[in-house]
């Protein structure tokens, strides 16, 4: 008992960082629970991933089979049910990623496992696991307890912590695929690469980003004026690109681009974790938002807590004056 299992995640020939992040957390939890860590890897031609994972986990359990060449929630679910029944871990961790959210809830229902989604931290109190997650896009935290018997299941938020350096020499065990035949009702077809636009914001030096607080399309004129004053490129949160204020290739965040400008000015962006994950590489972040509790301020270097409609036009005017 006390073992913590982690589903390693990979896509298009690359292991995803969330795997190492989860194993880092899993190691700390397993130490407190008196168990060990096991990385579960499903793939085809993934020997090198197994070796990498062994640096982070006491054990790597992996299936190497052409059936798992590409991710498929239905196949993963069938295999994980088998493995969880066989090994009975205390906790099973899956990334709160586009793979994890497509898989974990169905697995939880099938196995009647206590399940908490989008956990960003887990503590151990009196030998019991206490997962913590957010509500209202980061404005409220909630502490949870699992009821009933282990195994317990969580999806763990990406970039909640920094992965440790590899320090283990875990045992690697290759197992036969518990799934023998392909399934028909869900089939992987292909990957399509993200669209490319006129400006590559991943290369921009100065970015002005807009979010829901800008309210409507006509207010973009004011933003464009500010951008013109400092030769900035425009980008935005998911809300801004969904609303059509900017093309989709200007979206910053987990489902969009990761940017690393010298200066990032976030206007009317509250700072959902999906957005913040995409801007951490910025050298200087200026945030303008009228809500002092907006999570964007946790990563900002300069905070303007005020009405953007009063601040932005004046800022554009002053910048033009100063820059002649």
């Amino acid at each position: 008992m006390g073992d913590v299992f982690v589903l390693a995640e990979h896509r298009q020939g690359a292991l995803r960082e969330v795997s190492q992040e989860m194993l880092t957390k899993a190691s700390a939890l397993a130490a407190e629970l008196g168990g060990s860590t096991v990385a579960v890897l499903l793939g085809s031609g993934v020997d090198s991933f197994a070796e990498t994972l062994a640096g982070y986990s006491d054990k790597v359990l992996y299936v190497d089979d052409p059936l798992f060449a590409d991710y498929n929630s239905e196949k993963y679910q069938k295999v994980l049910v088998e493995l969880i029944n066989q090994y009975k871990p205390e906790l099973f961790m899956i990334g709160h990623t586009t793979q994890g959210v497509d898989l974990a809830p169905a697995l939880a229902v099938e196995m009647k496992m206590p399940f908490i989604a989008d956990v960003f931290d887990v503590q151990v109190a009196d030998g019991k696991l206490q997962p913590i997650r957010q509500y209202y896009q980061g404005k409220v935290n909630a502490n949870f307890a699992f009821k009933g018997e282990a195994p317990y299941l969580i999806t763990f938020r990406e970039a909640s912590l920094e992965a440790a350096e590899p320090s283990k020499e875990g045992q690697i065990e290759k197992i036969d695929s518990p799934l023998k035949e392909d399934i028909e009702y869900r089939r992987f077809v292909e990957y399509l690469e993200a669209e490319v636009g006129d400006v590559d914001i991943t290369q921009s030096e100065i970015l002005i980003a807009v979010g829901r607080g800008v309210k409507e399309d006509k207010n973009m004129a004011m933003i464009e004026e500010l951008a013109a004053a400092i030769n900035a490129d425009l980008c935005g949160s998911r809300a801004a690109t969904d609303a059509g204020w900017l093309p989709h290739d200007r979206q910053v965040g987990t489902s969009g681009k990761t940017v690393k400008p010298k200066l990032y000015i976030a206007i009317g962006i509250s700072g959902a974790f999906q957005h913040i994950a995409g801007i951490k590489g910025s050298k200087t972040i200026v945030a303008i938002n009228r809500d002092p509790d907006a999570p964007i301020f946790t990563v900002a270097d300069f905070a303007i807590v005020d009405d953007l409609f009063k601040v932005v036009p004046k800022m554009a005017e002053k910048l033009k004056e100063l820059r002649g």
Binding site: R11, Q12, R16, Y71, N72, T97, T98, Y185, R186, R187, F188, V189, E190, Y191, L192, E193, A194, E195, H248, D249, Q251, T254, S255, G256, K257, T258
Partner: peptide, 11 residues
Amino acid sequence: LEGGVIEVVEV
């Protein structure tokens, strides 16, 4: 998916 990549699946 992450990074704007699209995974096409048939269901």
